[in-house]
Amino acid sequence: MVKAPKGYRHRTRKLLTKGVRERGAVPKASVLFYPYKVGDKVTVRIDPSFHKGMPHRRYHGLTGTIVGVRGRAYVVSVPIGKSTVKTIITYAAHLRPLKA
Rank of each mutant, 00 (worst) to 15 (best):
V42E: 06
A73M: 14
L98R: 10
A93E: 09
G24N: 07
H51T: 11
R57I: 05
P35C: 03
V69Y: 06
Y91I: 03
K99P: 01
A93I: 07
V31W: 04
K6S: 13
I46C: 04
A25C: 13
G68E: 09
T65W: 09
S83M: 07
K86E: 03
M54C: 10
I80C: 03
V75E: 15
R58Y: 08
V76D: 04
S83G: 07
P35G: 06
A4W: 09
K18T: 12
G61F: 03
G53Q: 05
V75W: 09
R96D: 12
V42I: 09
R70L: 09
A100Y: 04
T63R: 14
V69I: 11
V85M: 02
V26T: 10
V67N: 12
G24S: 06
A92N: 09
M1V: 02
Y59V: 04
H94K: 04
I89M: 15
P48K: 03
K37S: 09
V31R: 15
R21K: 15
S30K: 14
G71K: 07
S77T: 00
I66N: 00
P5M: 06
M1K: 10
V2E: 13
G7E: 02
K14P: 00
P55V: 00
S49E: 14
R21Q: 10
V78N: 01
A4G: 06
P79C: 04
G24Q: 02
V42R: 08
G68P: 11
A29C: 12
P79E: 01
P79M: 03
M1E: 06
V31L: 14
T63S: 13
H94Y: 07
R58N: 05
V26S: 12
